[in-house]
C-alpha cells in the first residue's frame, strides 16, 4: 500500500471517530443493542449458501437505516469500502475460472456458478464491511469496549481492541514518517526494493516494540496491574428493546423467506 493510500486510510478512520461523537437516535442507543444486532446480522448474512444473491439484498436495509438515522454520509462510507474492496475481490476472483457449472437465477436465467459465488462474496462483503464501519461510526471505540465488557466478552479482548485502535494511529504515523525519510533521500528513479522494504518493516517492528514497552511502563506507573480499565456503567432503555426486537424479527423474516423472489411473484401475479 503506498504512503498516500495509507495516509488516506488513516484519515478515513479518524473521520469515523469524529462521526461517532454525534448525537443521533442511533448514537444514543446502548452499545450492547448495536453490538448484538451487528453480530446477529453478520451471522445471518454468512449463514446463506454460497450461491445466494437475491435473498441477501433485503439485508441492505439494516446498514441503510444505520447510515440514515446516524447521519453518516454515504460518500465517507463508500471511500472506506473501496479501500478494503481488493481483499474481497482477491478471495473470490478465481471462482468464475474454476466453477463454470450453470445455475438458474430467478428473473435472470442461467449464470455460471463461479460468477454467482463471486457476486455473493462481494454482496456479503459490502453488507458486512459497511455494517462494521457504521457500528464504529455510530458508537465510537470507547462505547464499543463498554458494550463488549457489559456483554461479558473476555476483558483481555476488549482491552486489546481499545489499545490496538489507539495505537493504530501511532504506528501508521511511524510508517509514514519512515517512508517520508526514505523518499527524501531517494532519487526520483529509485524505488522501494524488497530488501529496503524488509529493513523498513524490521525498523517499524523494533520501534513498535520500544513503544509498547514505554506504554506498558506508563500504564503501570498509573496503577495498571493487568486488569483492564473499568469504564462508566451503561443504561438500557425501552427504545433499545424495541429496536432489538424489530431488527431481530426482520433478519429472521429475510432468512426464512426470499423476499425479492416473493415480491417478484406477487408483482407478476398482479400483472398477469
Amino acid at each position: 500500500m503506498s504512503a498516500g493510500l495509507l495516509d488516506r486510510a488513516l484519515s478515513e478512520v479518524r473521520s469515523l471517530d469524529t462521526l461517532s461523537r454525534q448525537s443521533t437516535p442511533v448514537h444514543r442507543l446502548d452499545p450492547r443493542t448495536k453490538l448484538i444486532l451487528v453480530f446477529m446480522f453478520v451471522g445471518v448474512v454468512m449463514s446463506f449458501p454460497p450461491y445466494t444473491l437475491l435473498a441477501l439484498l433485503p439485508y441492505a436495509a439494516f446498514p441503510l437505516w444505520l447510515a440514515a438515522s446516524g447521519r453518516i454520509p454515504g460518500g465517507a462510507l463508500y471511500r472506506k469500502l473501496l479501500l478494503v474492496l481488493p481483499l474481497a475481490v482477491f478471495v473470490g476472483i478465481l471462482n468464475p475460472i474454476f466453477d463454470t457449472t450453470p445455475r438458474m437465477v430467478p428473473g435472470i436465467g442461467s449464470v455460471a456458478g463461479g460468477w454467482l459465488s463471486l457476486g455473493s462474496i462481494l454482496v456479503r462483503f459490502f453488507l458486512n464491511a459497511a455494517t462494521g464501519l457504521l457500528l464504529l461510526g455510530t458508537t465510537g471505540v470507547l462505547s464499543l469496549t463498554q458494550g463488549m465488557e457489559a456483554l461479558h466478552f473476555p476483558r483481555v479482548f476488549s482491552t486489546l481492541f481499545l489499545l490496538m485502535y489507539r495505537y493504530l494511529f501511532i504506528l501508521t504515523e511511524e510508517v509514514l514518517r519512515l517512508n517520508q525519510a526514505r523518499r527524501c533521500r531517494s532519487s526520483a528513479r529509485s524505488s522501494l526494493t524488497p530488501s529496503l522494504a524488509g529493513a523498513m518493516i524490521g525498523s517499524v517492528l523494533l520501534r513498535a516494540w520500544d513503544r509498547a514497552d514505554r506504554i506498558t511502563t506508563a500504564m503501570r506507573m498509573r496503577g495498571f496491574t493487568g486488569t483492564p480499565p473499568r469504564l462508566t456503567p451503561l443504561h438500557w432503555t425501552a427504545t433499545d428493546t424495541r429496536v432489538l426486537v424489530f431488527w431481530t424479527a426482520y433478519f429472521l423474516l429475510c432468512r426464512g423467506w426470499n423476499l425479492p423472489v416473493l415480491l417478484g411473484r406477487v408483482v407478476v401475479g398482479l400483472l398477469s
Binding site: L142, Y165, R214, A218, M221
Partner: peptide, 27 residues
C-alpha cells in the same frame, strides 16, 4: 508521578477524560 518525554507514550485512551480517569480508576 512520572511524566514521560513523549506524550504519545502517556496518552492511550480514546478520550482525554478517560485517559485522565485511567489512573484514579485503577486506584
Amino acid at each position: 508521578g512520572f511524566v514521560f518525554q513523549n506524550p504519545d507514550d502517556q496518552l492511550f485512551m480514546p478520550t482525554v477524560f478517560e485517559d485522565v480517569a485511567f489512573g484514579p480508576r485503577n486506584l
